[in-house]
Lab assay of single mutants.
Amino acid sequence: NITNLCPFDEVFNATRFASVYAWNRKRISNCVADYSVLYNFAPFFAFKCYGVSPTKLNDLCFTNVYADSFVIRGNEVSQIAPGQTGNIADYNYKLPDDFTGCVIAWNSNKLDSKVGGNYNYLYRLFRKSNLKPFERDISTEIYQAGNKPCNGVAGFNCYFPLRSYGFRPTYGVGHQPYRVVVLSFELLHAPATVCGPKKST
């Protein structure tokens, strides 16, 4: 009989979020998941679920829940969905086509923008091939755009693969920082350890 609540607040209220190319993952297990707390949290810009209804989450049990978190621009949030393409979905964070879970995003301009620009948040701009679902690539190898080998030196046709967002408070909404948490639900042939409040007695 599990009684402790799942530590969703640790994920959602973290002081610093990860850059999207180096997205953070927390495994959540052996706890009671009260999703209504999240669902009623006012400032969400997006709360979209795939393969599961957000209002039914509290009735369900899962083997594991993974909480992935990172920061992207407002106009990139739409790429955090199954079957998407674009710089983020291709080179930074890719969801599987059969994704079961929820994508939760909110504007973090007050936290993550600075006058003069916040350059701490990076994304991958160049990559030889697209990421596989949930693949994480933190390499900083110089990207070779031409035929000539770069030998690890940036220059003509040789690019550092990461780019900084440089968030400023005055940017338009599409270019403002958004914090994103992706909850993915794993249902294995194993005992369920993460259940909603109704199922955990």
Rank of each mutant, 00 (worst) to 15 (best):
Q144S: 10
V180I: 00
K56H: 09
I142A: 12
K199H: 10
N4R: 04
E135A: 09
F134Y: 09
D98H: 07
A46M: 12
P169E: 00
L187E: 05
A33L: 10
G146T: 04
K110I: 11
T201C: 08
P169R: 00
Y91N: 04
P197I: 14
T100I: 15
A154C: 04
N58V: 02
N87G: 02
E186T: 05
G51Q: 08
A46C: 10
D34L: 00
L122I: 09
K148G: 06
W106F: 10
T170Q: 14
Y119I: 06
K56A: 14
G196S: 14
A190V: 02
F160N: 04
L187T: 15
F12L: 03
V194H: 05
P149L: 03
N40D: 07
S184V: 11
P43N: 14
N30G: 10
N151E: 05
L38V: 09
V115S: 00
A18R: 14
A14S: 01
R127A: 00
K114C: 00
S184K: 02
T85A: 08
R168T: 01
A154D: 14
Y143Q: 06
K56Q: 05
T193C: 02
N4S: 08
G174S: 14
P191S: 11
A154Y: 01
P191Y: 07
N120P: 14
K132T: 07
V32Q: 08
E76H: 11
Y39R: 01
S29F: 09
F41E: 08
V52F: 08
S184Q: 02
A33V: 11
N1A: 01
N87E: 01
A46W: 15
L187N: 09
V115H: 00
R27S: 12
L60Q: 01
A33I: 09
L95I: 03
I138K: 08
D9Y: 03
A46N: 14
D97Y: 07
S164F: 12
P54A: 04
Y39W: 11
R163V: 04
V194I: 05
F99W: 09
T85Q: 11
V115T: 06
I142Y: 10
I138P: 11
D97R: 04
Y39L: 02
A190N: 15
A105Y: 00
F44P: 05
N87L: 11
S53E: 10
A46F: 10
K198A: 04
F41L: 09
G116F: 00
Y119H: 12
K114G: 00
E141G: 10
I142L: 12
K132H: 10
P54L: 05
L188S: 14
H175F: 14
N118P: 00
E10K: 14
F47V: 04
T3A: 14
K110A: 11
D9Q: 10
L125K: 13
T55M: 06
S78D: 05
P149K: 11
E10V: 12
K114H: 03
Y91H: 07
F126S: 13
N64D: 15
Y35W: 12
T15D: 15
R27Q: 13
K110P: 06
A22S: 04
N64Q: 06
A67M: 00
R168Y: 06
V32H: 08
K110D: 06
T170Y: 05
A46D: 04
L131I: 07
L5W: 04
A154E: 13
K110Q: 11
L122K: 14
N87Q: 02
L111R: 06
V173M: 14
G116P: 00
N151G: 11
K199T: 11
F160H: 06
A46S: 10
A22Y: 06
Q144P: 04
F12M: 06
S139R: 08
V153K: 05
T140K: 05
K114Q: 00
N87W: 00
V153A: 15
L183I: 02
K26T: 14
K198Q: 06
V194C: 07
